[in-house]
Amino acid sequence: MRTEMVGDVAGLDTSGYGPRTLTWWGTLAFMSLEGMGFALAAGAYLYLMSHAQRWPLNAPLPNYWPGTVVAILLVASAPLNHLLSNWARAKDLKKVRIGLVLMSLLGIAPLIVRCFEFPALHVGWDTNAYGSALWFLLGLHTTHILTDVVDTLVLTGAMFSKHGANPHRFADVTDNAFYWDFVILTWLPIYGLIYWVPRLT
Protein backbone atom coordinates (compact mmCIF):
# COMPACT_ATOMS: atom_id res chain seq x y z
CA MET A 1 0.00 0.00 0.00
CA ARG A 2 1.21 3.48 -0.82
CA THR A 3 2.17 5.48 2.22
CA GLU A 4 1.92 9.16 2.81
CA MET A 5 4.11 10.82 5.42
CA VAL A 6 2.18 13.03 7.74
CA GLY A 7 4.73 13.66 10.45
CA ASP A 8 8.15 12.96 11.84
CA VAL A 9 8.87 11.67 15.33
CA ALA A 10 12.67 11.61 15.22
CA GLY A 11 13.03 14.19 17.94
CA LEU A 12 11.10 12.38 20.65
CA ASP A 13 12.66 11.38 23.98
CA THR A 14 14.30 7.99 24.12
CA SER A 15 13.88 7.50 27.82
CA GLY A 16 11.69 8.59 30.68
CA TYR A 17 10.32 7.38 33.94
CA GLY A 18 6.98 6.80 35.62
CA PRO A 19 3.76 6.32 33.67
CA ARG A 20 5.41 7.35 30.42
CA THR A 21 7.37 4.12 30.32
CA LEU A 22 6.32 0.56 29.61
CA THR A 23 8.08 -0.94 32.63
CA TRP A 24 6.25 1.30 35.06
CA TRP A 25 2.95 -0.01 33.75
CA GLY A 26 4.28 -3.54 33.79
CA THR A 27 5.29 -3.11 37.42
CA LEU A 28 1.88 -1.72 38.25
CA ALA A 29 0.17 -4.64 36.56
CA PHE A 30 2.25 -7.15 38.50
CA MET A 31 1.56 -5.26 41.71
CA SER A 32 -2.17 -5.43 40.98
CA LEU A 33 -2.20 -9.13 40.46
CA GLU A 34 -0.01 -9.81 43.46
CA GLY A 35 -2.13 -7.43 45.50
CA MET A 36 -5.13 -9.46 44.43
CA GLY A 37 -3.31 -12.58 45.63
CA PHE A 38 -2.75 -10.95 49.02
CA ALA A 39 -6.37 -9.86 49.20
CA LEU A 40 -7.59 -13.37 48.47
CA ALA A 41 -5.23 -14.94 50.98
CA ALA A 42 -6.50 -12.45 53.54
CA GLY A 43 -10.06 -13.27 52.49
CA ALA A 44 -9.38 -16.98 53.03
CA TYR A 45 -8.03 -16.19 56.49
CA LEU A 46 -11.14 -14.20 57.37
CA TYR A 47 -13.38 -16.87 55.90
CA LEU A 48 -11.80 -19.57 58.05
CA MET A 49 -11.99 -17.26 61.04
CA SER A 50 -15.69 -16.63 60.51
CA HIS A 51 -16.34 -20.37 60.43
CA ALA A 52 -14.33 -21.13 63.58
CA GLN A 53 -15.71 -21.38 67.10
CA ARG A 54 -12.75 -19.45 68.46
CA TRP A 55 -9.72 -17.80 66.99
CA PRO A 56 -6.87 -18.68 67.23
CA LEU A 57 -7.89 -22.31 66.92
CA ASN A 58 -6.29 -24.34 69.71
CA ALA A 59 -3.13 -22.28 69.74
CA PRO A 60 -1.66 -19.50 71.86
CA LEU A 61 -1.72 -15.97 70.53
CA PRO A 62 1.28 -15.11 68.36
CA ASN A 63 4.07 -13.00 69.78
CA TYR A 64 3.78 -9.71 67.99
CA TRP A 65 7.29 -8.37 68.57
CA PRO A 66 9.19 -9.74 65.59
CA GLY A 67 6.36 -8.72 63.27
CA THR A 68 6.30 -5.27 64.78
CA VAL A 69 10.05 -4.92 64.27
CA VAL A 70 9.59 -5.89 60.63
CA ALA A 71 6.84 -3.29 60.30
CA ILE A 72 9.06 -0.62 61.85
CA LEU A 73 12.00 -1.55 59.64
CA LEU A 74 9.87 -1.48 56.53
CA VAL A 75 8.21 1.81 57.32
CA ALA A 76 11.56 3.30 58.29
CA SER A 77 12.97 2.37 54.90
CA ALA A 78 10.29 4.35 53.08
CA PRO A 79 11.88 7.84 53.29
CA LEU A 80 15.20 6.61 51.95
CA ASN A 81 13.36 4.69 49.27
CA HIS A 82 11.80 7.93 48.08
CA LEU A 83 15.05 9.84 48.24
CA LEU A 84 16.64 7.14 46.14
CA SER A 85 13.87 7.42 43.62
CA ASN A 86 14.41 11.19 43.42
CA TRP A 87 18.16 10.79 43.02
CA ALA A 88 17.54 8.37 40.18
CA ARG A 89 15.25 10.87 38.49
CA ALA A 90 18.00 13.46 38.85
CA LYS A 91 20.39 10.87 37.35
CA ASP A 92 22.84 11.36 40.23
CA LEU A 93 24.91 8.20 39.83
CA LYS A 94 26.95 8.57 43.01
CA LYS A 95 23.98 9.06 45.29
CA VAL A 96 22.02 6.32 43.55
CA ARG A 97 24.86 3.88 44.19
CA ILE A 98 24.98 4.75 47.87
CA GLY A 99 21.20 4.64 48.11
CA LEU A 100 21.01 1.22 46.51
CA VAL A 101 23.58 -0.23 48.88
CA LEU A 102 21.64 1.13 51.82
CA MET A 103 18.32 -0.11 50.44
CA SER A 104 19.82 -3.56 49.94
CA LEU A 105 20.76 -3.59 53.62
CA LEU A 106 17.35 -2.28 54.58
CA GLY A 107 15.83 -5.09 52.58
CA ILE A 108 17.95 -7.81 54.14
CA ALA A 109 17.30 -6.60 57.70
CA PRO A 110 13.57 -7.47 57.76
CA LEU A 111 14.41 -10.82 56.18
CA ILE A 112 16.65 -11.62 59.14
CA VAL A 113 13.94 -10.62 61.61
CA ARG A 114 11.50 -12.73 59.59
CA CYS A 115 13.50 -15.79 60.57
CA PHE A 116 12.42 -15.11 64.15
CA GLU A 117 8.91 -14.20 63.16
CA PHE A 118 7.88 -17.65 61.95
CA PRO A 119 8.58 -19.34 65.31
CA ALA A 120 6.90 -16.44 67.07
CA LEU A 121 3.61 -17.40 65.44
CA HIS A 122 3.47 -20.13 68.13
CA VAL A 123 1.73 -22.50 65.77
CA GLY A 124 2.89 -24.90 63.06
CA TRP A 125 1.59 -24.77 59.52
CA ASP A 126 0.40 -28.32 60.04
CA THR A 127 -1.20 -27.81 63.45
CA ASN A 128 -4.56 -26.65 62.17
CA ALA A 129 -6.15 -24.42 59.56
CA TYR A 130 -5.37 -21.32 61.59
CA GLY A 131 -1.68 -22.18 61.54
CA SER A 132 -1.83 -22.90 57.83
CA ALA A 133 -3.41 -19.54 57.11
CA LEU A 134 -0.81 -17.68 59.16
CA TRP A 135 2.14 -19.39 57.52
CA PHE A 136 0.58 -18.81 54.12
CA LEU A 137 0.21 -15.07 54.64
CA LEU A 138 3.65 -14.71 56.12
CA GLY A 139 5.22 -16.92 53.47
CA LEU A 140 3.57 -14.94 50.70
CA HIS A 141 4.91 -11.67 52.03
CA THR A 142 8.36 -13.12 52.65
CA THR A 143 8.61 -14.16 49.00
CA HIS A 144 7.87 -10.58 48.06
CA ILE A 145 10.61 -9.15 50.25
CA LEU A 146 12.97 -11.80 48.99
CA THR A 147 12.37 -11.17 45.30
CA ASP A 148 12.62 -7.43 45.71
CA VAL A 149 15.86 -7.74 47.66
CA VAL A 150 17.34 -9.93 44.94
CA ASP A 151 16.20 -7.40 42.36
CA THR A 152 17.76 -4.57 44.35
CA LEU A 153 21.05 -6.46 44.66
CA VAL A 154 21.19 -7.14 40.94
CA LEU A 155 20.39 -3.51 40.21
CA THR A 156 23.08 -2.40 42.64
CA GLY A 157 25.54 -4.58 40.76
CA ALA A 158 24.43 -3.09 37.47
CA MET A 159 24.80 0.47 38.75
CA PHE A 160 28.38 -0.24 39.76
CA SER A 161 29.11 -1.78 36.35
CA LYS A 162 29.95 0.11 33.17
CA HIS A 163 26.26 0.03 32.25
CA GLY A 164 25.32 2.12 35.26
CA ALA A 165 25.18 5.58 33.77
CA ASN A 166 22.25 4.86 31.46
CA PRO A 167 18.89 6.62 31.64
CA HIS A 168 17.08 3.27 31.47
CA ARG A 169 18.96 2.04 34.53
CA PHE A 170 17.87 5.13 36.43
CA ALA A 171 14.29 4.40 35.39
CA ASP A 172 14.75 0.85 36.66
CA VAL A 173 15.78 2.24 40.02
CA THR A 174 12.60 4.30 40.23
CA ASP A 175 10.48 1.26 39.32
CA ASN A 176 12.29 -0.81 41.91
CA ALA A 177 11.56 1.84 44.52
CA PHE A 178 7.93 1.85 43.40
CA TYR A 179 7.74 -1.89 44.00
CA TRP A 180 9.35 -1.61 47.42
CA ASP A 181 6.57 0.77 48.44
CA PHE A 182 4.18 -2.01 47.52
CA VAL A 183 6.08 -4.48 49.69
CA ILE A 184 5.85 -2.06 52.60
CA LEU A 185 2.18 -1.31 52.05
CA THR A 186 1.07 -4.92 51.79
CA TRP A 187 2.74 -5.75 55.07
CA LEU A 188 0.59 -3.41 57.13
CA PRO A 189 -2.80 -5.13 56.61
CA ILE A 190 -1.21 -8.57 56.89
CA TYR A 191 0.52 -7.53 60.07
CA GLY A 192 -2.83 -6.41 61.46
CA LEU A 193 -4.50 -9.66 60.41
CA ILE A 194 -1.89 -11.92 61.91
CA TYR A 195 -1.21 -10.18 65.19
CA TRP A 196 -4.10 -7.91 66.04
CA VAL A 197 -7.29 -9.40 64.63
CA PRO A 198 -7.04 -12.50 66.90
CA ARG A 199 -6.55 -10.17 69.84
CA LEU A 200 -9.67 -8.20 68.99
CA THR A 201 -12.02 -11.17 68.94
Binding site: A52, W125, N128, F136
Partner: peptide, 27 residues
Protein backbone atom coordinates in the same frame (compact mmCIF):
# COMPACT_ATOMS: atom_id res chain seq x y z
CA UNK B 1 -4.71 -15.05 41.45
CA UNK B 2 -7.71 -16.80 43.04
CA UNK B 3 -6.92 -20.10 41.41
CA UNK B 4 -3.21 -19.60 42.07
CA UNK B 5 -3.98 -19.17 45.75
CA UNK B 6 -6.36 -22.12 45.90
CA UNK B 7 -4.20 -24.52 43.90
CA UNK B 8 -1.20 -23.58 46.03
CA UNK B 9 -3.24 -24.31 49.14
CA UNK B 10 -4.25 -27.65 47.66
CA UNK B 11 -0.64 -28.57 46.95
CA UNK B 12 0.36 -27.53 50.44
CA UNK B 13 -2.45 -29.59 51.97
CA UNK B 14 -1.33 -32.58 49.98
CA UNK B 15 2.40 -32.12 50.29
CA UNK B 16 3.29 -30.62 53.63
CA UNK B 17 0.15 -31.29 55.64
CA UNK B 18 -1.51 -27.89 55.95
CA UNK B 19 -5.24 -27.97 56.72
CA UNK B 20 -6.87 -25.32 54.57
CA UNK B 21 -9.55 -27.70 53.37
CA UNK B 22 -9.46 -30.24 56.18
CA UNK B 23 -12.71 -29.80 58.07
CA UNK B 24 -11.48 -31.90 60.97
CA UNK B 25 -8.79 -29.32 61.72
CA UNK B 26 -10.68 -26.10 61.24
CA UNK B 27 -10.38 -25.96 57.47
Amino acid sequence: PAVMVSSTMLILDRLVGTHFFNWAEGG
